[in-house]
Design a protein around this nucleic acid. Structure first.
Length: 290
DNA sequence: TACCCGTGGCC
DNA sequence: TGGCCAAGGGT
């Protein structure tokens, strides 16, 4: 697939079908883009689109979040999931204040050095806000490229080689490259979906290697399946944190004991939460960090 | 590399 | 209905 052909196919489609999302509004700040991308890590757009507005209304700058009490940050994160992201987001805010005078950095290596920001998020900020030319590779992009370009029904496990593969598909122009990236993501989210792709509505239908091959089933290596949630340590951690968010006082362990039948597993969960900095053990009680 | 980390919605 | 999936990152 030629980079210019890809842009020619995707740009008009994206212009017509792009969703109106808060982080796509004119004037959305670099900080807002960074916060939204972290919230979007493994969390659906529908849940982030309301949460991001409330969050930025409360903490509109890195300095504001850096100064916030951590227990309030965790409460505001609420049920978005993976609460370590909230901790790292505040750590990133503090790093931005301390290392960069409160200004969100624009270059990828500096963004990558911030806590909680990896290959995807660093480039998303650099491309979507600062309009630089980098490959932005998320699960949508990997799936669309696997189908349209490689001709496979699905992408295998993520690999660092994906970055170079996608980079080769970007037009030379910074702005056009950014459009290709956001359009690939939008196409993967709306049309080239994981379960039931709507190929009849796809702007790449005529050029798609997977369709040309007759849409063969994927036989390659798959990403490892996620462990069952029911009964897992993750469920216990979530249960404990939910209880702590609901009150503004430390909870005695005796009270936590009512939350989970397996006392040993509960203790391990509290210990792992403490190791992550998500809770503080104070004598016989557990609380959110100050 | 494989595994850990929450929560909700989908068919 | 239970497994799959969702704008990943850290270790």
């Amino acid at each position: 697939m030629d980079a210019d052909l890809l842009h020619a196919r995707l740009a008009p489609w994206y212009a017509e079908h792009r969703r109106d999302l808060p982080w796509r509004e004119p004037g959305f700040t670099a900080w807002g883009t960074l916060v939204s991308e972290i919230m979007l890590q493994q969390t659906q757009v529908a849940r982030v689109r309301t949460a991001i507005v409330e969050w930025l209304g409360r903490w509109p700058t890195p300095a504001a979040l850096a100064d916030a009490p951590t227990h309030e940050v965790l409460r505001a994160w609420g049920t978005l999931g993976y609460p370590r992201r909230a901790l790292r987001l505040q750590d990133a805010a503090r790093a931005i204040v301390e290392r960069h005078d409160g200004v969100v950095p624009s270059d990828v290596p500096t963004l990558l050095a911030l806590p909680g920001i990896g290959d995807y998020t660093a480039r998303a900020v650099a491309v979507f806000h600062f309009r630089q030319r980098h490959p932005v590779v998320d699960t949508n992009v990997r799936r669309v490229v696997a189908r349209a370009v490689v001709g496979q029904g699905d992408a295998g496990p993520a690999a660092r080689a994906d970055l170079a593969r996608v980079e080769a598909l970007l037009p030379a122009d910074d702005d056009e490259a950014g459009t290709v990236s956001i359009a690939l993501m939008e196409l993967g989210a709306l049309v080239c979906t994981a379960r039931t792709p709507r190929c009849d509505a796809c702007p790449l239908l005529a050029d798609c290697a997977w369709v040309a091959a007759g849409r063969p089933a994927y036989e390659g290596r798959r990403a490892p399946r996620q462990a069952a949630f029911a009964g897992s340590d993750r469920q216990v951690r979530g249960t404990v944190l939910r209880a702590l968010r609901a009150v503004d006082v430390p909870l005695p362990r005796a009270e936590l004991a009512g939350l989970w039948p397996d006392a040993g597993q509960l203790d391990r969960a509290v210990a792992s939460l403490a190791a992550d900095g998500l809770v503080v053990v104070e004598g016989d009680a557990v609380r959110l960090p100050h």
